[in-house]
Design a protein around this nucleic acid. Structure first.
Lengths: 218, 218
DNA sequence: CTGGATCCATGATGATACTG
DNA sequence: CAGTATCATCATGGATCCAG
């Protein structure tokens, strides 16, 4: 019987890791679960270009690999996918890849490129972290295209979670994804509603503007 | 014309990075270049199971991606592949994957699994780094199956390079890969020649023994 | 010998449509 | 909402061959 899992059969820790999460799309599924549990269609929205067949195959493989877990409650249509502790331990891998992407594979959003609010916000927090020099705790509540996100600095670095913040944030930004893109890449305020006290709002604007400066190529 | 490069077309730094180094085998090629420049056949030896076709394809893609460079000198048969600075910046990615592999995808060498000396030594240095608590500079010279490697602690962590050390090392270990495997996983000294002063040799033995303890499953 | 290229078989992925 | 079914295409593995 053919082995249905692609292996390398090297005695090598990196190869062992890649056997579990190295398939096409796998790490991007994990990326989208790092901000919180998601449903199948939530993942479809974010993983632009994936087919439902491939997504369900990946989800099953990642479940077998012990990286994600599935919550099915009887009497409920929705199925929720979330990271296991082993899956959450992949965060440093995703962070390192993102950092390398910022340093060496940056380019502006392309016209034909699907742009999901969650990915834009991930880029923002990663860029601010790379620019460094920002270790003050803070909480920004984004409401983009009707969905909520919380960007949070815990005193060491910024991270992102999906969903409405349990406690009030310092700054609340309500906009469309497109309007936020315009703020970041063109400095345009049109269509944005930014509320909060003067200090935090000023800091927000300052840090957002670093997004454009931290990267060298266009 | 069909695009010959697999893309995701997401506005996402992680996806951008994976478009360049996320193909099957790509990160393992980079893994083997992190310890120094290699020839085509050196890479074939280490990437057990890869076909020459796939390797040459990957090498060309990675060159196009700006991650590796090719040295062809006129009048010399050999072609040497090495990392560019952008390629070397992938080290944190490989380190993070290796660390995750050590935590969650560990298993002993399998009988049918090719075991290359360089990969065994990489596992050793990664395991010692994860066990931590070892920040004394040191240099170990391995001569395994006739090839030289230098494992070196620069005061913060252990790293590995292929090739004979330019300066004398604290400990010199001469053995076959199989004999070193037996030392690590069974504590057997047979077929090993370990030379050096008493202190460094004792430290070597102590740290090697942590390799078996740092991992939970067999 | 090194550094590949070629041919073929098979498996993985993509596009599209459809279902419980 | 959460997938499955079908078909076409692409990528990979295995074996072999070849030029410098």
């Amino acid at each position: 019987m053919a082995r249905n899992v692609r292996t390398y059969d090297h005695f090598c820790l990196t190869a062992r890791a890649l056997e579990r999460v190295g398939d096409r799309w796998s790490l991007l599924v994990i990326r989208d679960l790092l901000t919180g549990a998601k449903r199948f269609t939530d993942l479809m929205d974010r993983l632009g270009g994936i087919t439902p067949k491939t997504l369900s195959q990946r989800l099953r493989e990642l479940e077998d690999a012990g990286v994600i877990a599935v919550d099915r409650e009887p009497g409920r249509r929705e199925v929720w996918y979330r990271l296991t502790p082993a899956g959450a331990d992949l965060r440093p891998v995703l962070d390192a890849l993102g950092r390398w992407g910022l340093q060496h594979a940056w380019r502006r959003p392309q016209a034909d490129e699907p742009l999901h609010a969650e990915h834009l916000l991930r880029s923002v927090t990663q860029a601010i972290n790379l620019a460094a020099g920002d270790h003050e705790p803070a909480r920004w509540h984004f409401r983009l295209d009707g969905a909520d996100y919380l960007a949070e600095n815990d005193g060491s670095q910024w991270s992102l979670t999906a969903g409405a913040p349990p406690a009030p944030a310092d700054v609340t930004i309500t906009a469309t994804t497109r309007a936020l893109t315009a703020l970041i890449f063109a400095g345009s305020d049109a269509g944005l509603d930014i509320t909060g006290e003067t200090g935090p709002v000023r800091r927000f604007r300052r840090l957002i503007s670093t997004m454009a400066t931290v990267v060298h190529p266009v």
